[in-house]
Computed example of a mutant assay.
Amino acid sequence: MSTALAKPQMRGLLARRLRFHIVGAFTFAMAERRKKAYVDLYTNYDSMKDFEEFRKAGIFQSAK
């Protein structure tokens, strides 16, 4: 008695693999865009300026 190997599914294989890789590429592209946005934000970020604006607005009640 010999056991035959199951035939590989060939129909739709390319479409399934492309769908998987397109989703991965899109996710990776969005992550890179977000990283660039953070870098752009923090290149000229002044935390003391923001702190003073928040303090004047009354957000930080303990810091007068």
Rank of each mutant, 00 (worst) to 15 (best):
A15I: 03
R34N: 12
R19Q: 15
I59K: 07
S62N: 12
F26L: 09
G58Q: 03
A25R: 02
T27P: 00
R34A: 12
R34C: 11
E53H: 05
A6I: 05
I59D: 00
T43M: 06
E52T: 13
S62Q: 12
K36I: 14
K64H: 06
D40I: 03
K64L: 04
E52Q: 10
I59P: 00
Q61L: 08
S47T: 05
N44A: 07
D40A: 04
E32T: 12
Q9E: 15
L14E: 06
Y45W: 02
R19L: 09
A63G: 01
T3L: 09
Q9N: 11
L18F: 13
E32F: 06
Y38H: 05
H21F: 14
G12L: 02
K7I: 13
D50K: 06
L41G: 02
F28H: 08
L18I: 12
Y38I: 05
A25P: 01
M10E: 13
K64Y: 04
L13R: 15
K56Y: 02
G24Q: 06
V23T: 13
M1D: 01
M48F: 08
A57H: 06
K56G: 05
M48L: 10
Y45M: 11
R16G: 01
P8E: 11
K56A: 08
A57W: 08
G12K: 04
K64S: 08
S2P: 13
Q9D: 12
I59C: 01
K56V: 06
A37L: 06
E52H: 09
M10V: 10
Y38K: 07
S62R: 10
K49E: 02
T43F: 02
M30V: 15
M30A: 15
R11E: 05
A31E: 06
K64A: 10
Q61A: 13
F20H: 11
L18T: 15
R17I: 06
T43L: 03
M1K: 07
F28C: 13
A63H: 07
D46S: 09
T43A: 09
M30E: 11
F26Y: 06
S62W: 04
F26I: 15
A31S: 09
Y42V: 05
N44M: 00
A63Q: 10
S2Q: 11
E32I: 12
A63I: 13
I22V: 12
L13Q: 13
Q61C: 00
I22G: 05
R34E: 12
D50C: 00
R55C: 01
D46A: 03
F28G: 11
Y42D: 04
K36V: 14
R34L: 11
G24W: 01
A6V: 08
M10R: 12
Y45D: 11
A6H: 05
